[in-house]
Design a protein around this nucleic acid. Structure first.
Lengths: 202, 202, 202, 202
DNA sequence: AATGAATGAGTCTTCATTCAT
DNA sequence: TATGAATGAAGACTCATTCAT
């Protein structure tokens, strides 16, 4: 963070620009996911996107701006998914709810890997994460209270946080499953179902 | 990456050196936990330990060597705790087992934070992690099969992996608990107890 | 030794870059000739060339790359001179041949001084030298056998190597001559003429 | 050369000290011959001699002092050899004179390699070399005038310098001979014999 | 005297960022 | 707008030298 003023990414006005920005974000995501935020260099991001370093700075005036752009794209996708979940939740069984949440995390995988790497490095990402996290947490809490009206707001909130934490592990589990062939993701579905079920009976 | 050879930490041969090494490891752990491996600088590690940069390099001939030193210290402590767990497990109730595991993670917190940050950055840490992870996983799987003789080895293994993943979140939960005042850690204890209990009845 | 991979000098793509590279090579040659490879610092090379350290590294991504760049420029010039010699040799008298060889070394002086300093320090320079050395040696051997058809290939080869060694001293002789005013270079011409003449009569 | 005052090696008073100094000089010579003056480190010299770094500094208060110690040991041996040559020269044939000179260089080989590496790096070595060089040059010039009374002092001096230069190549020739199996050293003997013979007839 | 820990200036190298073309 | 050269602060690491034990 060598200078702290240029943070906002510039909006591209034409189709060509849109594509460029998308390419740059993709390149950035891939690189940061692979090597971490610090180790990823702006020059390499530009190269991988088939652009010059100058071109990269045209759209993202600083490395931090690129990171925030990455995060925003991820946040937008994630928020949409949470909205979907809220919409579909009513009427689903315990097991179906658990499945739905796990599927959501699996779909976010590609973008999430890069985004997670940013949290430690970029001041301000953690803050931007809060609304997203709260949205997910709120949606889960709401779902829990729909299932069990006896739950206090705090009870539901704490359980929702716990569920959100477990959901974070899904990506690791998916990777391990690919390597070992063991049904780790299915186990996560079961654990969540068991836990949600347990919350139903409090 | 100018290196790849100097990896071994040098053993101090005098009392003064032993203390230095301990101070340097502490400083390194604190800094890396706070800013991540890449962002932590060797100069700052030395300063925080009250040593000169040359002194740091006397014992840790590269940044990577420091990281590995950090990991090894953590691994040793963690392995001891797993041994403790194995010893105490027989005769404990489901809830007590869950508590015991959570307590273990809480005690490891200080060292673990730094160590986690290393996994992505240092080639070879992930490999060194495996034995440790397997030890924990094996201990949990063994515990599960003691509680429920019906479990296949694979069932116990997958469940153990799941439990280990949830345990990893304990540190985050503890931090959140400190900030929000909500009983996140207790909720983790409950979730694990519920899950272990569920495994008992399969 | 943090390196071992970045060895290739990057080709400049603009006119400004071409000039830069030439300036940097000149500065490097002068400095290395004066103080040796190890003692010459990259910072000083850049300064002497009127460039920033970053600019130097843009084209020569490591100190070794600069050294190899230096060598290659020298090797190219030297090879051209040997070709010239081969072309002109037929029909020259013994004394003229000796003169020609000595003149060749004198012309190479500027570049050679730096290049010689590299041989000990850079792995791989010695290997790159071989083709050049063999080319010179081959040219001299060929010349000897033109003058005296009785010479075996081995005889000519050994004599050529000897002549090449003596030629290497020409640069030192030129320096000494400048200091003392004594005709050292002329003496080298004579010694070589005597020796070539002697080879004629075997 | 970080400070320029401590230059003289301290004289050891006891037998144990003498041996230590000899070991340190041997280690220094080997290391400097192998890697050059700059690349050789004091720590490694000490290690190779089986001494501690502190012990090394006991006898050679600076790296330069070690270098000068090395040179002085070489100079002493070389001077003795020149004296021998002067004594034996009268009555020898041209070819025998050439042989004698070449043999002298071969015997000096071990020490010379390290010493040559110093010339560029240590201010003051070049100066200390002059007396030695002049002694050799004077001996050769004297020899030449013994063989041919017609030679002017300058003629003899210039020829002697030339011969001295050629003698310097003997070490390289010996190495090449070991690798290729070709009689390079013998060729040097012949070249010198031819040249000395030629000087006889001027 | 011997040992090895401590020091810190100086080196190579990287990379975010700026700017001329 | 696009390109790639230029910049220099900052970081990892080395090593001659000093000093306490």
């Amino acid at each position: 963070m060598r200078n702290a003023h240029k943070i906002e990414a510039k909006e591209p006005k034409r189709a060509r620009g849109k594509q460029r920005v998308a390419d740059l974000l993709d390149a950035g995501a891939a690189l940061i996911a692979a090597k971490g935020y610090e180790a990823a260099t702006m020059t390499e991001v530009a190269q991988r996107a088939g652009a010059s370093i100058g071109s990269l700075y045209q759209f993202f005036p600083s490395k931090e701006a690129l990171a925030l752009g990455l995060f925003d794209r991820y946040a937008q996708q994630a928020a949409a998914m949470v909205d979907d979940f809220v919409e579909c939740a009513p009427g689903l069984s315990t097991a179906q709810l658990a499945d739905r949440l796990v599927d959501m995390m699996l779909e976010l995988r590609a973008h999430r890997l890069a985004t997670v790497a940013l949290s430690d490095s970029i001041t301000g990402i953690a803050e931007r994460r809060h609304p997203l996290r709260n949205k997910l947490r709120g949606a889960i809490a709401h779902m829990l209270r729909s299932v069990n009206g006896q739950l206090s707001e705090q009870q539901a909130g704490v359980a929702a946080y716990m569920i959100a934490q477990v959901l974070k592990t899904v990506q690791t589990l998916a990777i391990e499953e690919a390597e070992s062939g063991l049904p780790h993701v299915a186990e996560a579905r079961r654990m969540l179902a068991v836990y949600i079920d347990h919350m139903t009976k409090l």
